[in-house]
């Protein structure tokens, strides 16, 4: 780890015949970071992960994972990473305890470490009563935590999570993310793909891939700010129907729209939300016999960002 990066990808490209699955992708992930890799199905997410895990060699370009080149040392890479896929990939037809032993042995965890880690894992997941039962009898959320535990038995530097929360209930999803936070806090790099864009908010940095190309990279906040230059405000006004037609007359407003009982206003470029602007809105409405109950800037979701970026790409093509 010469440069402090856990994953350092340079011009990674994978072609299957005439089809380009991953097109000249470059980015890096810092040690201990939670990195979200987002994109619709078939966009090149899985192919990228497979190359990073040493399952597939790139057509061109390279990547360093945990300090090892994926082209030259794929076997070394494998010992430094953990992987958990979207579908539960432990053996359902052997017991919980047998599964833990199986994966531990594959990663050559020493017997003494194994004993301790197994006990910790079973205690953490409250599986004492379940350890001799078939794995298929576990509830979904616990199974997923167990799969993560098994993928972490060898204490990898990087854990790759491929759609880890698919098919899991919302409460378990939230619990799962708190486990991911703990992993990151203890120094493990987490590389996670998801199509739940709300989950990407938990990530320190995200990369968005679309049609094999990386279309955005950065922290969720930076992405929002860079994508939407204009500030959007949500106003709770006494008479929204009347307000929506009046508000565009305010000098700072570019346009307005009704949004349920609320009014959304997009400010002119370069103007951001401040107490002064809020006062000017209140006075503006009071002069027209309307009461401003509350006003706050709307935070665009990452989904908004993603859709906006894709729109721009398709407009660019047209």
């Amino acid at each position: 780890m010469t440069n402090g990066f856990s994953i350092d990808i340079k011009n990674l490209t994978k072609k299957f015949g005439a089809f380009t699955a991953v097109d000249d992708v470059s980015f890096s992930v810092k040690k201990g970071e939670i990195f979200g890799f987002l994109g619709p199905n078939g966009s090149g997410k899985s192919t990228t992960i497979r190359m990073l895990c040493g399952l597939m060699s790139p057509t061109s370009g390279t990547a360093e994972v945990a300090g090892f080149d994926i082209n030259q040392n794929p076997e070394q890479v494998k010992t430094k990473i953990g992987y958990m896929s979207q579908r539960f990939s432990l053996y359902n037809d052997i017991t919980v305890s047998q599964n833990i032993d199986f994966w531990g042995t594959l990663y050559k965890v020493s017997a003494s470490d194994m004993k301790e880690r197994k006990e910790t894992l079973i205690a953490d997941l409250n599986l004492e009563d379940w350890k001799n039962r078939l794995t298929q009898t576990l509830p979904g959320g616990i199974k997923q935590r167990l799969a993560l535990g098994c993928a972490m038995l060898h204490q990898p530097e990087i854990i790759f999570l491929d759609e880890p929360t698919g098919g899991v209930d919302p409460v378990s999803r939230r619990n799962f993310w708190s486990v991911i936070d703990q992993l990151s806090a203890s120094g493990t790099t987490v590389f996670v793909t998801t199509h739940f864009l709300d989950e990407a908010e938990y990530c320190q940095n995200v990369g968005m891939i679309y049609n094999a190309k990386l279309i955005a990279l950065g922290s969720p906040t930076a992405l929002r700010e860079n994508t939407f230059k204009e500030t959007s405000i949500e106003l709770d006004v006494s008479n929204p129907m009347e307000a929506v037609s009046i508000i565009p007359d305010h000098p700072d407003v570019a346009e307005s729209s009704i949004f349920g009982n609320l009014v959304h206003a997009i400010l002119k470029p370069g103007i951001s939300w401040s107490p002064d602007v809020e006062t000017s809105f209140r006075t503006f409405l009071e002069n027209r016999h309307l009461v401003l109950k509350s006003a706050e800037p709307v935070v665009p979701s990452l989904e908004d960002v993603f859709i906006h970026l894709i729109d721009q790409i398709s407009k660019g093509k047209a």
Binding site: K78, S85, L90, L106
Partner: peptide, 13 residues
Amino acid sequence: ERRTLEQLMISPI
């Protein structure tokens, strides 16, 4: 089919 093969291939086996 059960994708355990993928998990095995990623391990150092």
